[in-house]
Computed example of a mutant assay.
Amino acid sequence: MHTITLIKGDGIGPSIMDEAVKVINATGVKIEWEEAYAGLSAFEKFGTPLPDATMTSFDKTRVAFKGPLTTVVGTGFRSINVALRQQYDLYANVRPAKSWAGIKTRYDDVDIVIVRENTEGLYVGLEHYLSPKKDIAESLAVVTRSASERIVEYAFQYARDNNRQKVTVCHKANILKFSQGLFLDVAREVAARYPDINFDEKIIDAACMHMVMNPKQFDVVVTTNMFGDILSDLTAGLVGGLGLIPGANIGADAALFEAVHGSAPDIAGKNLANPTAVIMAGAMMLSHIGETEAAERVVKAVEKVVNEGIYVTPDLNPNTKAGTVEMGSAIAAAME
């Protein structure tokens, strides 16, 4: 029996999370779901977007499954996602983007995994004004040798464990000689310890161009926090959008799995939201807790339903009569 903290989230979160739980339960894996709250729904219910009870649950289970959250303005939290990543030192953000046979895009052969450093860089939030008039602002990027080494090490070990052939480090060391230079230096040092994995390095702006021109040249990509945020959205666009992209936030002793898209309150409660991303995140979670066979069954079922294009949401097939619930049910049925 696995105990997992379940945060359904805001907007479309509860509806897509219900379908994801339905699919995961259909695998037969025994999971005790411990429901907790975060985001706008938590703020409305408890007066805080990140209640102590949620942290207590995550402290105990060390695995959380989360829907999209709405950041509450003016509460002291820049982002609940960032707060959770920093609180539990979830240093590796992993976002795979793979082409789907049933979804027509510009490319048919994309299979890229973005491994993003998740705890530092420009997103540490060290910002201030340099003048009383608040007309000059400064943001500080923090890059450490230890965090750089562990994220690059994670990327290479991920490549080795998943039969990947190449790791590309994306950087801006040609301009940011110290912070990005340190990251690149460390990446080169780690790469030397993995002679079985091809190593490539690209300046971030050139990497974006190459990714759009020929995505097949990329396999596993490792980069700093903000660059990883941008690149993971770019790769999502190559395969059909954020509605198809799962995300994992991995730490040494805790992990959080989520859809990377927003809470889309405009379509909440309309049975329109695509549950694919969070169901695929659920498959990543199953693999993380050692249920690899169940994870593979979920992935195959999702691929079957998406590629057939019948019981899918309108964003995947404008002519469909199916919605969120019907798609989730079809995926669960495809595992039988």
Rank of each mutant, 00 (worst) to 15 (best):
residue 235 T to R: 04
residue 242 L to A: 15
residue 95 R to L: 12
residue 107 Y to T: 07
residue 23 V to I: 09
residue 10 D to R: 03
residue 132 P to C: 15
residue 323 G to F: 03
residue 219 D to M: 09
residue 321 K to P: 02
residue 246 P to A: 08
residue 165 Q to K: 11
residue 49 P to N: 06
residue 1 M to A: 11
residue 252 A to E: 09
residue 251 G to H: 01
residue 183 F to W: 15
residue 24 I to V: 14
residue 285 M to E: 00
residue 180 Q to F: 13
residue 98 K to E: 11
residue 184 L to F: 12
residue 222 V to L: 08
residue 157 Q to C: 11
residue 20 A to P: 03
residue 303 E to Q: 14
residue 310 I to A: 13
residue 85 R to M: 05
residue 15 S to G: 10
residue 97 A to W: 08
residue 322 A to T: 12
residue 95 R to Q: 09
residue 8 K to C: 10
residue 299 V to D: 08
residue 184 L to R: 13
residue 1 M to C: 12
residue 224 T to K: 05
residue 176 L to Q: 09
residue 8 K to S: 10
residue 110 V to Y: 13
residue 175 I to C: 13
residue 168 T to Y: 01
residue 302 V to Q: 00
residue 139 S to A: 15
residue 335 M to C: 07
residue 222 V to W: 04
residue 25 N to A: 13
residue 79 S to A: 10
residue 121 G to N: 07
residue 193 R to P: 00
residue 21 V to I: 06
residue 126 L to K: 07
residue 267 I to W: 02
residue 153 E to P: 00
residue 30 K to L: 06
residue 26 A to W: 00
residue 26 A to R: 01
residue 180 Q to Y: 11
residue 57 S to G: 03
residue 270 K to H: 08
residue 159 A to D: 00
residue 23 V to S: 01
residue 192 A to I: 15
residue 266 D to A: 12
residue 303 E to F: 05
residue 248 A to V: 07
residue 109 D to Q: 08
residue 231 L to G: 10
residue 271 N to R: 02
residue 136 I to L: 14
residue 107 Y to E: 09
residue 336 E to Q: 10
residue 325 V to D: 02
residue 74 G to N: 06
residue 205 D to L: 10
residue 266 D to R: 10
residue 290 G to W: 07
residue 67 G to F: 02
residue 95 R to Y: 05
residue 152 V to M: 05
residue 65 F to W: 01
residue 305 V to L: 10
residue 147 A to H: 03
residue 240 G to P: 00
residue 104 K to H: 11
residue 312 V to S: 05
residue 334 A to F: 05
residue 293 E to H: 12
residue 247 G to D: 03
residue 172 K to S: 08
residue 39 G to H: 03
residue 74 G to L: 08
residue 294 A to H: 01
residue 124 V to M: 14
residue 328 G to K: 01
residue 215 P to R: 02
residue 161 D to T: 10
residue 90 L to F: 10
residue 162 N to R: 15
residue 244 L to Y: 01
residue 264 A to D: 03
residue 60 K to H: 15
residue 116 R to E: 09
residue 162 N to Q: 09
residue 107 Y to W: 13
residue 51 P to T: 12
residue 288 H to S: 14
residue 8 K to H: 06
residue 82 V to E: 01
residue 186 V to P: 00
residue 20 A to E: 03
residue 101 A to W: 03
residue 4 I to C: 13
residue 125 G to S: 15
residue 6 L to S: 09
residue 144 T to Y: 15
residue 46 F to K: 10
residue 284 M to V: 14
residue 203 I to F: 11
residue 269 G to H: 15
residue 115 V to F: 07
residue 182 L to N: 11
residue 162 N to V: 14
residue 1 M to V: 11
residue 261 H to F: 05
residue 277 A to S: 07
residue 313 T to M: 04
residue 312 V to K: 04
residue 74 G to C: 12
residue 18 D to M: 08
residue 188 R to E: 15
residue 317 N to D: 13
residue 329 S to Q: 12
residue 312 V to I: 14
residue 160 R to F: 02
residue 261 H to Y: 09
residue 72 V to F: 07
residue 302 V to L: 04
residue 230 I to P: 00
residue 14 P to Y: 11
residue 189 E to C: 01
residue 240 G to D: 03
residue 272 L to T: 09
residue 121 G to H: 12
residue 201 E to I: 06
residue 90 L to Q: 14
residue 235 T to V: 11
residue 334 A to Q: 06
